[in-house]
Structure formats: C-alpha cells, structure tokens
C-alpha cells in the first residue's frame, strides 16, 4: 500500500490538495527506550507535487517536520480529470509516489 494519501476538494475556482504521508520522520536524536541507543535519522528530504505533469510544488524538508507529515496547498483552477502526482525521497534513498485524479 502506498504511503501517500491524497484528497482533493474543488471550491469555486480553486482546488484544495491535502496530503497525508505515513513516514516515521525520525530526526536521529530520539533514544530507543529499551536499548538506550539513538534511533537512526530517517526523514523525507524532497517532496514534489505535479499537476498534469507540471511541477506545482517542490518542497525541501528538514528533520523539524512532524511525524506522518500533513501538507495542504490550494491550486488555482483545477478541473475534474486533472491528474495530481506526489512523490517523495528520504535521506536513506527510499521513494514512493501516488497518483490521484480530481473528481
């Protein structure tokens, strides 16, 4: 299952895009409660949102973003059938992407 959930909502001449990504976003300073060892850092570095193959948001994130990041943007215009794709890359090289069609 994809780690990304995309929801869109059309409002008059705008479209709201909401993203919820399941990701630990560890900043590498938390200690494991049992072993007392720091949990290695794992966080999303780059996230891009495209609309109909055109990049609309490119986002660089640091380790101060909260666990399971939630992001929202508002697109000017947007009509039914427009394709939204989201993909991310974290510091360990993992990637994921998800496609969504505006209803």
């Amino acid at each position: 299952m994809s780690s990304i959930k995309i929801r869109t909502k059309r409002m008059n001449d705008k479209t709201q895009i909401r993203l919820l990504i399941a990701h630990p976003m560890e900043h590498g300073k938390t200690l494991d409660k049992i072993t007392q060892q720091p949990i290695p850092a794992q966080f999303i570095r780059v996230l891009t949102v495209t609309c109909n193959q055109k990049v609309v948001v490119s986002c660089e994130m640091g380790d101060s973003a909260a666990k399971d990041p939630y992001l929202a943007f508002i697109l000017k215009g947007g009509k039914a059938g427009d394709k939204i794709t989201v993909n991310w890359l974290d510091n360990l090289g993992n990637t994921d992407s998800e496609e969504h069609t505006i209803k």
Binding site: K14, H27, C51, K54, V55, V56, V57, D63, S64, A65, A66, P69, Y70, L71, A72, F73, I74, L75, K76, G77
Partner: peptide
C-alpha cells in the same frame, strides 16, 4: 509555481 495560491499548511516539531 504560479499555478498555486499563496497557501501552505503543515505540521512541525
């Protein structure tokens, strides 16, 4: 991009 409104929502630590 110019296609977006100046609106961003997120959560931070």
């Amino acid at each position: 991009s110019s296609q977006l409104e100046a609106f961003v929502s997120a959560r931070l630590i």
